[in-house]
Design a protein around this nucleic acid. Structure first.
Lengths: 125, 125
DNA sequence: ACACCGATTCGATAGTTGTCAAACTCGACC
DNA sequence: GGTCGAGTTTGACAACTATCGAATCGGTGT
């Protein structure tokens, strides 16, 4: 509301394998990009969602059933579902229904963008 | 205060140059670590704070004055100050007062942890 | 001492979020 | 086709957050 939204980039779109952003140690993030990428960080900014994300990202088969996620937490199934929706809408995961079950898998592109933003040089060390 | 010191992840402590956490693509995050690290992601989960962080991280002299940060945003000075406090409390930046001005500089250790968590392999590619 | 300036803190408020229980949808299986 | 089970959506609510203006704090310089 305070920002006139000039060029409107869209890093949360489907077609998003472009590099997008240099490390923030090298270049300041412009406001439109900040809006987009902060949404992804925000999605990881809850303990339950971060754990969900890690369970999905480290799933041995590249995907994991909701039925395996839910019992790992103390919260209700509807809350887990709500958090999964948040991760989905942030572009961090993908869901697919097969038979009675729903499987989630990571979307590495955005994770890579976030990691790059946080300075890959420090990692390469 | 909430940490029973079992395996002690403690990523928000001062003495934090330890690796802490393997990439989440390789190993699930335990609940205590999730609480700690999600706080850092949460701090980056606001457009203004993400831009502030990038301005601090990319400051040519390794630090930047609040007086240079504030005019770059549409929000009030007190709001900027509040966001800077959030980044400070998350362990992402450090502040120092010199004369009339306050200078902020990045704390790379935590940023490195977050980047590693998001899979360094994808970066090294 | 005093006024000034940069930055933080305080108090208030509108908006957002995490959570649950209940209602609902989609597919499977008798 | 009726029922069951897995997930999602809906509605409600307490807790938190982003924001502002006003008050305050810390240093400078007159």
């Amino acid at each position: 509301m305070s920002k006139p939204a000039t060029t409107a980039p869209a890093p949360l779109d489907e077609s998003n394998d472009v590099p997008c952003c240099p490390p923030m140690t090298q270049q300041r993030i412009d406001s439109a990009t900040a809006v987009n990428l902060s949404a992804a960080f925000k999605a990881l900014g809850d303990p339950v969602r971060l754990q969900l994300m890690s369970m999905i990202a480290s799933a041995p088969d590249g995907e994991i059933c909701v039925c395996d996620l839910t019992p790992a937490f103390e919260v209700s199934g509807s809350t887990i579902s709500h958090h999964l929706k948040t991760l989905r809408e942030a572009g961090l995961v993908d869901a697919e229904r097969r038979a009675s079950w729903v499987y989630y898998r990571p979307r590495p592109a955005l994770m890579r963008q976030l990691a790059t933003l946080l300075d890959p040089a420090a990692i390469a060390q």
